[in-house]
Computed example of a mutant assay.
Amino acid sequence: MRMTNKTWAAGLISLALSTVPAMAQDVTADTVVATVGGKDITLGHMIVARNALPAQYQQLEAEVLFQGVLDQLVQQTALAQSLGDDVTTATKLSIDNQTSGLLAGEALGKAIQSAVTEEALQAAYDARFADAEPETEFRAAHILVETEDEAKALKEELDGGADFAALARDKSTGPSGPNGGDLGWFGKGMMVPEFEAAVIALEPGQVSEPVQTQFGWHVVKLEETRLAEAPALDEVRQELAAEIEGATIDAVVTEVMEATEVVRPEVEIDPSAINNLDLVAE
């Protein structure tokens, strides 16, 4: 069974109950905590390793974490050195991929941190909502059945004075049936087009003729309408931040790629070669 760094660290931490050596008060990320075969392990190495532990180990006390993480780094460094130059091609390439991936992530992270500011969020909010016209929202109920004949029969009953909510509870096959068919408040674009068109055509209190959608046949009642107020910034903060992040990533990637020379040799490679692990096994 292959052991990952996380399982290796977890096993060591579970055994790390010994007393931790006293540390000087004035420490930095470069403070050396051990030297293994001439290679220094620093407090910075330990901090990064501790931060990568599985969530269940993050709450352990520092005394336990310190010794466990230190033991992990000492042992994995010694094991790494024991390979000498006998490292597989796959491992060397994995190191390359992980290095470029981490650095790419840091580059994007710095760009995002600079872009997602309170000023940028407020500007994005104002652009979307400051001059936006209030949109109409609808509160409607419906009765969903399988056939047009069933829907027509329901409409006749309703025209004759039957209670809409009672019929919905008794006849509707939709999930809103037990609630009298009530769908709550919704805006434009939230319902399938045929249903939305039927709702918009009604006045509050009116009941539609049978309407067919992909879900079946509906009889719809418009309860009331209202003008929706713009949401507060905090209500859409995450959504706006995600949009800014996405735009920032696109812009950074485009800028970097335009400034970087990329050469793609004209070599024909069978796409199935990507599945050939034998090529990197040695």
Rank of each mutant, 00 (worst) to 15 (best):
F129W: 15
K110P: 00
A124K: 03
A123V: 12
G105R: 09
E137H: 02
T147R: 03
T147D: 01
Q113W: 01
S114K: 13
Q122K: 07
A124V: 14
A140T: 10
G105P: 06
A132G: 12
Q122P: 12
E137C: 10
E106P: 03
D131S: 15
D126H: 05
I112L: 11
L108R: 01
G105F: 12
A130M: 09
T117C: 12
Q113E: 14
G109K: 11
Y125R: 01
Q113S: 13
E146D: 12
L103F: 08
S114C: 14
L108I: 05
A124F: 15
K110E: 07
T117N: 08
E133D: 13
E146T: 09
A127C: 10
T136K: 04
E146Q: 14
A141I: 03
V145S: 05
A132S: 11
A130C: 01
L121G: 08
E133Y: 07
L144A: 08
E135R: 04
L108V: 03
A127K: 07
A140R: 00
A120T: 00
T147A: 08
R139H: 11
I143T: 02
L108Q: 12
A120I: 05
V116A: 02
Q113D: 08
A115C: 10
V116R: 04
S114T: 08
Q122E: 13
V145L: 10
E119T: 13
A130Y: 04
H142K: 14
L103Q: 06
Q113P: 08
H142M: 14
E106M: 14
E106A: 13
T117M: 04
H142S: 09
H142L: 08
A120Y: 07
P134F: 11
K110T: 15
A120W: 09
V116D: 01
F129V: 15
A107V: 04
I112T: 09
A111V: 00
E133I: 07
A123I: 06
L121Y: 02
A123W: 15
H142C: 11
E135A: 02
F138K: 06
L121H: 04
D131Q: 11
A140M: 10
E118D: 12
E146F: 08
R128I: 02
A140L: 07
E135D: 02
A132L: 07
F138G: 11
D131Y: 07
A104T: 11
L108S: 10
A140F: 05
A120S: 09
R139K: 12
T136Y: 11
F138S: 12
A107E: 14
E118A: 05
R139C: 09
G105L: 03
A130L: 09
A104N: 14
E135C: 02
A140P: 07
L121A: 09
E118Q: 14
P134M: 06
